[in-house]
Amino acid sequence: MTQLLKQQDGVWQITDSQPTDWSPAESFSTGSALKLAVDVEPETAWASASLIAVDFPALTDGRGLSLAALLRQRIGYAGDLRAVGAVHEDLLHFLLRCGFSSFELPAERDPAIALQLLAPYSNFYQGSVMDPLPALLR
C-alpha cells in the first residue's frame, strides 16, 4: 500500500492513498484526474484537471521535474500536482520547488524520514516556480 504525503490546513501529513480514477492523457476531459508519464508534451486543456499525477520511473529520472515546471508555468495548472512512482525522500525539496504539492510514497519508504526531509534548506540560490527571486536579489 502506498502512503500519501500532503498538506492539510497548512500542515504536512501522511495518510493512506485513496484509490483514484485516473484518466490517461489521450482521453482527458475537463475535471478528470490525469496520470502522466514523464515524457508527455503538456497540453493547455489540462489546466482544468481535478488532479494531475506525474509518474517517476526512477529516482534518477529528472524529466518529471521539468514537466511539473511546465504544468505550473506554461499550462497554468493550479490544482494538486502529485509525484507518484519512484518518489524518494531526498528529492522532495526539488519536487516541491518545481511545483509538486503532494507525494505518493512507495510502501518501503519511511514516512517519518520523508516528513523530516521536506525542507532541508531554508533558502536556495536560484528562483523557482515557487519563488521567482534569486538569492542575489532577495
Binding site: G62, L65, F94, L96, Y125, Q126, V129
Partner: peptide, 14 residues
C-alpha cells in the same frame, strides 16, 4: 552567476 544558478537547481539535478 552560473554557479549560483546551477547549485541545487530544482529542475536540473537529475
Amino acid at each position: 552567476l552560473i554557479r549560483q544558478w546551477s547549485t541545487l537547481h530544482p529542475e536540473f539535478e537529475w
